[in-house]
């Protein structure tokens, strides 16, 4: 007799973790930054991260605010380290590519806001994929 005792669906529990005040704040910040709806952000977080990382989201986000992506405006605007190191939602190499491309574009055509907006759209796709 085989009982799959542990492989229960944990999504309910993970959602409960995201329901606290501080997590709400992080989800709101992420959704404002990348222009995605909150339920979608929550879904991606639940899919990609394990439970202890979910619990730790606010501390990690604060850590990024304090010292992540220091020294580079483009990285800071896109949140490269935010999405690869602090809250790993996106693939490292793809993120670097996007940042590299944006930096080049800004250097050549000087269309700063436009390039950032374009890159954010790409990142949105990356998170969704």
């Amino acid at each position: 007799m085989v009982e799959y005792l542990y492989e229960k669906d944990l999504r309910g529990m993970q959602f409960n973790i995201l329901a606290s005040t501080r997590h709400e704040w992080v989800v709101a910040e992420l959704s404002a930054r990348y222009g995605m709806r909150k339920p979608e952000i929550r879904r991606r977080l639940i899919e990609r991260l394990d439970m202890i990382l979910l619990e730790n989201l606010p501390a990690r986000y604060e850590g990024w605010l304090a010292r992540g992506d220091a020294g580079d405006d483009v990285d800071r605007a896109l949140g490269v380290e935010l999405l690869t190191v602090y809250i790993p939602l996106a693939e490292d190499t793809r993120m670097q590519d996007i940042a590299e491309y944006t930096r080049e574009r800004i250097a050549t055509d000087d269309a700063h806001d436009e390039s950032i907006a374009h890159a954010l759209a790409q990142i949105r796709e990356l998170i969704r994929s």
Binding site: M13, I17, D50, I52
Partner: peptide, 14 residues
């Protein structure tokens, strides 16, 4: 390693 939690979640803040 990954962690699964939720065995003692009581919702005290709520």
């Amino acid at each position: 390693a990954e962690m699964d939690l939720g065995y003692v979640k009581k919702g005290i803040e709520r």
